[in-house]
């Protein structure tokens, strides 16, 4: 099996965000995370490209992403005081979209920092 090597991969498990990790990966999983700590190794090696979970769930039943986006938008739109929360384990690009979402909705916006 062809192994892909990625130098200078960035680990987002904790706030240290180490950016000198060397990853050895095939199509579905990462086999080695060199220079990563115990936490970082577990983070990289435990994620796979397999379809482990359904694309989306609505009321616990499997649904498509399109249906889930429609349902989520409707719940948010109907709410008087929606809350947008979290944003820790995601990218800055997604965080910007979240700020726009809260702005559009007139919502509350908060992150893990408030804990």
């Amino acid at each position: 099996m062809e192994m892909k090597v990625i130098d200078h991969a960035t680990c987002t498990f904790c706030g240290c965000v180490c950016d000198d990790i060397q990853l050895h990966a095939d199509e579905t999983r990462i086999h080695q995370a060199k220079k990563a700590c115990v936490l970082g190794k577990a983070w990289f090696l435990n994620h796979t490209a397999e379809r482990k979970y359904p694309d989306a769930l609505i009321d616990g039943k499997e649904a498509t992403v399109d249906e889930a986006i429609e349902a989520a938008s409707e719940y948010l739109y109907q709410a008087d005081m929606p809350l947008v929360y979290g944003m820790s384990n995601t990218t800055c690009e997604a965080q910007r979209q979240c700020v726009a979402l809260a702005d559009n909705l007139g919502a509350l916006l908060d992150s893990h920092t408030s804990l």
């Binding site: 800055c92 965080q95 992150s111 893990h112």
Partner: peptide, 14 residues
């Protein structure tokens, strides 16, 4: 001291 991955990014973006 930060626990979660990109919580600093959330602060910066907001």
């Amino acid at each position: 001291m930060r626990g979660h991955g990109n919580v600093t990014g959330a602060d910066v973006i907001m």
